[in-house]
Design a protein around this nucleic acid. Structure first.
Lengths: 374, 374
DNA sequence: AGTCACTGAGAAAACGTTTTCTCACTGGCA
DNA sequence: TGCCAGTGAGAAAACGTTTTCTCAGTGACT
């Protein structure tokens, strides 16, 4: 029989044999080392070309101790907000020659631990995007995940965080409604253990202290279009004239649900979203929301991670050569003084006024509605 | 000085040493081999637990020759259609314990080659989602990418393809407009080398032969919201009363552009999209479109790839309890005979009538409009 | 002419697993 | 007691690279 026609993919050994040199030399040539004779180098390159040789990334990663791949964990890939963030990370990482491994926990906090660990081990670092796990769990997990960057969540261990000023954003939205005459507001809250939800609540609290004549009712909500849709009746059961939804998705669901109930927006009720996802400008009516630079959020997360992965020239003179000591640098830097560690970045939001908000109705609408039991 | 406090991550060797056994035994225990003594096994497990040992996936992949990771190449992560497909693949793959590496070519066909090859080499297989490269390039590339599954594109080499019946879909949309009285139609076409665009054109051609009294004008378009927006004036320059957009994104852009021009939809002009992306039901007016089961598209792509990766028992009765056998069902269902090679799956679409289409205007609208030069 | 620095390439170790091969040991049976 | 099958675990090869170490060869300088 024949010679077992090429059972396994061609490797560096084949190239070496063909070029009549050693593995080492082939490796040197492929990696652009200039310590190889011109003629030999070109011979190797020719052999590689003829054999269509491409180095196996696995072997390469193992030897190099890095895979130029990072993991990104998101709570739900169906959510446009996370899609946008993921895209921001991916684009920015690609720019620097890195790839992204996606992990979707499907809004299941208990899965996050495993997914994050796995994603981390398969790459050089990981980005946790709005993880839903508890603070304790996050603290436990974070040290083992380094290099790690968090989005919309913080951890004590000096882990870089990229986040959005939700408190300020929702306060501004509330102010916007207040300025339109709304005094009775409702908030469709997000997941219990969502950090960004807590921030929104803080912002609203501040709003309430600043505007004593305003009232706020907090309704249990969710994070999806469906939960917004489902909340329509509950919203109508309140006396609120302005509703702040947890995010655009919820707001859009609410809009849809209200429409089915024959409620006019913003005539009867004003609605705001949050995030300014791509299509929030094209709902009917277009959604008033707080713009979040989602792509930049991802991009910045990558920047941070990249800095962690390449702790290159930033330190002062007399930098030591041992790469392992940068751990010490990191530990040290997290201190108070203005050393190498960057502050956590917080993105500001901007109120984007569209059609879903308008002046508070003049008549007392509540009297016309059935206060649903509860 | 100290003992060089754990410079590298702990490996199988550390566990072996601690448990007083060899690497091999640790490996056996970790992989659930039953050929290990109970007491030793538990000792190993204890050691692994204490050391918080997790096998390095890189080493594992190298030895096993597989990484349980696949690559997915999409033309543009910003496009909700591809997001949905990606999600479908990712969810389904995760169900089977696989991860997804994303590669976004940013609608740059020349990049696809490199990105696809890289993604392929880093994983066990790859899904090419609507690649924009030329047929020749695809034919060249496909053999080197196996195991490979194509979405909305075909290749000669027996590569499984999962696709959408765009021809039928757009024909049905055209019929829908025709039934509403529209006779002069326009098509905002997609990318030149998009296979799905060609299919749409074929479907429209068939429509024209079936409806000799209808006319169609083909306008160069694009794939994005922006291109739809930009095409508004050009559309108005035609005498068309019904416009078929390449996809929902373009249709939404067009809607937006038309709105700015003061054109009423569907009063003055009817508009259709394609794909039924998540938010097309919430534009103003809601978009009439053809529903494409995007998630299923991705899911099915994964099924196919999975079948290629695990060419396991599919023959004969004595069905195993493994739930994965439904792959065989699918293959059988689409094939002529019950053989192992699955036919390409084609998903049907369904016209989703919403608010953006209506009866053709009674008056000859063209006379009221300025025929723009060209 | 002899040493020395230098250049360039091969041998071998390293990365962290899995798996085949090999062999020591145990117990049953003749 | 001696043989044999069977069990279970260690040694070593394999996966495909990169990189350190080593050393042969070359030219220059004293």
């Amino acid at each position: 029989m024949e010679k077992k026609r090429q059972p396994r993919r061609i490797g560096i050994a084949d190239v070496a044999r063909r070029a009549g040199v050693s593995h080492a030399t082939v490796s040197r040539v492929m990696n652009g080392s200039f310590t190889v004779d011109r003629t030999i180098a070109s011979r190797v390159r020719a052999a590689a070309e003829e054999l269509q040789y491409h180095p196996n990334p696995l072997g390469r990663s193992l030897a190099l101790g890095k895979s130029e791949t990072i993991g990104v964990l998101v709570p739900d890939l169906a959510n446009p907000m996370f899609q946008a963030v993921l895209r921001g990370v991916s684009m920015a990482a690609a720019q620097d020659g890195y790839r992204v491994l996606i992990a979707d926990s499907s809004e299941t906090p208990s899965e996050e631990h495993i997914l994050a660990s796995d994603a981390r081990r398969r790459g050089d670092g990981v980005v946790l995007c709005a993880p839903r796990m508890s603070d304790e769990e996050l603290e436990d997990l974070a040290p083992g995940l380094q290099p790690l960057v968090l989005i919309n969540r913080t951890s004590s261990g000096g882990t870089p965080t990229v986040s959005v000023d939700y408190a300020d954003g929702i306060r501004n939205l509330a102010e916007h409604l207040y300025a339109l005459g709304h005094r009775r507001l409702a908030f469709l809250s997000g997941p219990e253990n969502s950090a960004s939800n807590r921030l929104r609540l803080q912002g609203l609290e501040q709003f309430l202290t600043e505007r004593p004549d305003a009232s706020l009712q907090i309704l249990p909500g969710g994070v999806s279009f469906a939960s917004g849709h489902a909340a329509a009746l509950e919203v109508l059961a309140t006396s609120a004239t302005g509703v702040l939804a947890f995010n655009d998705l919820v707001a859009m669901g609410l809009l849809s649900g209200l429409h089915e109930q024959g409620v006019t927006v913003p005539g009867d009720l004003s609605v705001t979203g949050f995030d300014d996802i791509e299509f929030s400008g094209y709902t009917s009516p277009p959604l008033t929301t707080a713009t979040v630079p989602l792509n930049q959020l991802g991009e910045q997360a990558w920047r941070r991670l990249h800095a962690l992965l390449n702790p290159k020239a930033d330190a002062g003179p007399g930098a030591d050569a041992d790469p392992a000591t940068d751990i010490a640098d990191i530990a040290e830097a997290s201190g108070a003084e203005g050393s190498a560690v960057p502050e956590n970045t917080v993105f500001a939001t901007q109120v984007q006024v569209r059609g879903s908000t308008g002046p508070a109705p003049a008549d007392v609408r509540t009297s016309q509605r059935n206060p649903v039991t509860r």
